[in-house]
């Protein structure tokens, strides 16, 4: 399930914006693309992209999921890496598309597509070997590890490596850092009470670090965690890692 061994540095990459970023966090998507462009890459954002189809797939609606997944496969046609600012959407496209299309006429195409999918922080670290110059004020942050980034994409230390490059940023590990925040897509509303118990524990762990910001690489987790933080009235901000890195490097 881990990502391919270091591909050579491409000239052009696709950017897959994800449906949550599209509607709720466009600044995170723009920041992700800007980080890539600053490294001299040409970034292509196909306007016909929409959603990785994970919501339907995880709900057991495979025909519906396939129809939407197929749209992505037909949109990202060139043989460029597809950079995704979400471990969860990347995990869906990279690890689940092959099974989703097994036995379908376009199975081979789906496999090829899946092979081009990379998670943003992994790409920044392993392909671009990015060097970040921090221009921000000193700040203490904590990291929330997304389940699918870790367990489907094998992305564990890469985001923290990026945060540790920032000289003004102190990274404090939260208790139960690798435990699920309780989002789980439809789980958050289908089992609202269990999800609430999970995210409340997550927020407590985050608050205990004393950090003023929680950084994550997945907007689903972020929406869940910051929603609970705000509801509890805690003075902690949530940021997608792309947005946070870009802010720091511009000198916020």
């Amino acid at each position: 399930m881990s990502q391919p061994s270091r591909p050579s540095r491409p000239e052009t990459v696709y950017f897959f914006g994800t449906c949550l970023i599209d509607l709720f966090y466009p600044q995170a998507g723009l920041a992700g693309m800007e980080l890539l462009r600053r490294e001299g890459l040409r970034v292509v954002f196909p306007q016909n992209q929409s959603c990785c189809a994970q919501p339907a797939r995880n709900s057991g609606y495979l025909d519906e999921a396939r129809a939407v997944a197929r749209r992505q496969i037909e949109t990202f046609v060139e043989d460029w890496p597809i950079v995704v600012p979400s471990g969860s959407c990347a995990g869906m496209m990279r690890t689940h598309y092959p099974a989703l299309f097994e036995g379908q006429p376009d199975a081979e195409r789906a496999r090829a597509f899946a092979g081009r999918v990379v998670e943003l922080t992994w790409f920044l670290v392993h392909v671009l070997d990015i060097r970040l110059a921090d221009k921000g004020e000193p700040v203490t942050v904590t990291w929330h590890a997304s389940c699918h980034a870790m367990r489907e994409m094998g992305v564990r230390d890469e985001p923290k490596q990026l945060l540790r490059q920032l000289s003004g940023v102190t990274l404090v590990e939260a208790g139960h850092e690798t435990e699920c925040c309780g989002f789980g897509g439809t789980f958050a509303v289908r089992h609202a009470e269990i999800a609430a118990a999970m995210v409340d524990d997550k927020v407590t762990s985050i608050a205990r670090t004393g950090a003023s910001a929680v950084i994550s690489g997945d907007c689903g987790c972020l929406m869940n965690i910051t929603g609970a933080i705000d509801k509890a009235g805690r003075p902690i901000v949530g940021r997608h890692i792309a947005e946070f890195l870009l802010e720091r490097c511009h000198g916020a």
């Binding site: 914006g17 466009p26 723009l30 954002f45 609970a228 705000d230 509801k231």
Partner: peptide, 24 residues
């Protein structure tokens, strides 16, 4: 137990187009 998510006003699709990012 959460505040409601905030819709961004403009989608990433719109903002990417406006920012002049290549789309094909």
């Amino acid at each position: 137990n959460r505040t409601r998510p905030h819709f961004a006003g403009q989608t990433l699709h719109e903002r990417a187009r406006r920012a002049g990012i290549d789309h094909e």
